[in-house]
């Protein structure tokens, strides 16, 4: 369809509690300031209790639908490996992927009824080659002293996929949307994430 060509589709997936919503809020702020129309959709409530969560994020000159069609994701930001794999068939062939190298076991795996899919990063690399950025988001956040900032680490890696807006605008959004006491650690997380994700 013609209009969707002009719109870029970013899809966030993860597990409830990982902070996907904050990451997509920051992205929205950056792109609004850069002059884009922005729409995003997510589900709150029951879906948050450790279940899988997704955010549909779209930007362009004029965006109508808040939801992305399967097969039209330009950028996938997966906060957890299995939750990335779950949406692999939503990606365009040329899609770029930010993949957090982090596993959270779902109940069927915890109970020993199913296996956690092996080598998810390898699967992505096989199909998307150099477009995959594997990030040690959880490990970086833990080293910074708070596992919760893994979302901003991933945002940093995502930011490196954009030539414009540049890093200063992203940092400005972090300062604008987060309380001052959280600035220092989140700025660090962002910068570490921005430098991470080699292929």
């Amino acid at each position: 369809m013609s209009t969707s060509q002009a719109t870029t589709n970013v899809f966030f997936s993860g597990v409830g509690g990982q902070g996907t919503i904050l990451a997509s809020n920051l992205l929205g702020q950056v792109l609004l300031r850069a002059g884009y129309d922005v729409k995003k959709a997510e589900v709150h409530g029951m879906a948050q209790r450790g279940g899988d969560v997704t955010t549909h994020f779209r930007f362009g000159a004029r965006v109508y639908s808040p939801l992305i069609r399967q097969g039209e994701v330009d950028i996938l930001v997966a906060f957890e490996l299995l939750e990335g794999l779950r949406y692999i068939d939503w990606l365009r062939p040329e899609a770029r992927i930010v993949l957090n190298n982090h596993r959270i076991l779902p109940p069927a795996v915890s109970l020993g009824k199913m296996e956690y899919p092996p080598d998810i990063a390898g699967t992505f690399r096989k199909h998307f080659g150099e477009n995959v950025r594997l990030v040690e988001g959880a490990a970086i956040a833990r080293a910074l002293g708070n596992i919760q900032v893994a979302n901003v680490v991933l945002l940093g890696t995502l930011s490196a996929l954009f030539t414009d807006p540049g890093p200063e605008q992203w940092l400005e959004a972090i300062r604008e949307l987060l309380p001052a006491r959280h600035h220092e650690i989140n700025v660090k997380a962002f910068l570490e994430g921005r430098g991470a994700g080699g292929i």
């Binding site: 879906a47 450790g50 279940g51 069609r69 794999l85 068939d89 990606l91 699967t123 199909h127």
Partner: peptide, 20 residues
């Protein structure tokens, strides 16, 4: 025409919500 995906997700373990 549904876009043809490069890879299929296959049969993955679900992740229903759970008590914390």
């Amino acid at each position: 025409r549904a876009p043809r995906p490069r890879a299929l997700a296959g049969d993955l373990p679900g992740r229903p919500p759970n008590l914390c």
